[in-house]
């Protein structure tokens, strides 16, 4: 399960960077060029977007590390489960509550499987 978790994390990082970059971030930047915006705002959202890519790579590395170091694996899996769960909850609620559509922020489709896989890996490492 630890390997499946690592794969899910890596795949989500790739989807975020390539697919999300092409269909969400790049179009937003293009449309944003027409309006005046502070560098602080653009710099902050940009660093968050690209930071999340690197964050997924970091989590993939952690999941792989947990796979080869059983004595610390449980804590790492639990930590990954809790951290991804927070994003899964917000992604599920935000699109529905703010825009009336669960698919407005469809990223819960990635975060729930990751959170569940991490929890199963945690249970399996006991």
């Amino acid at each position: 399960m630890g390997l499946i978790l690592a794969f899910l994390l890596f795949a989500t990082g790739c989807i975020h960077h390539f697919r999300g970059g092409g269909s969400i971030w790049a179009p937003m930047l293009v449309q944003w060029q027409d309006v005046k915006q502070k560098k602080l705002v653009k710099g902050t959202l940009g660093f968050i977007w690209h930071g999340v890519t690197l964050w997924f790579i970091g989590m993939t590395g952690l999941a792989l590390y947990a796979y080869v170091t059983p004595h610390i694996a449980q804590g790492i899996y639990l930590s990954l489960a809790i951290q991804n769960l927070s994003f899964a909850i917000i992604a599920s609620l935000y699109g529905k509550l703010v825009y009336g559509r669960f698919l407005a922020s469809p990223q819960w489709l990635f975060f729930w499987p990751i959170a569940v896989a991490a929890f199963v890996a945690y249970s399996g490492a006991m």
């Binding site: 969400i24 309006v35 917000i90 935000y94 407005a104």
Partner: peptide, 24 residues
Amino acid sequence: KLDEAQVSQRIKATLGFMWHGITL
């Protein structure tokens, strides 16, 4: 500004969930 530029709901919701997700 996103409203002003009339970006799609998906873009706004994605950035919004990331913003509030980081808080949690």
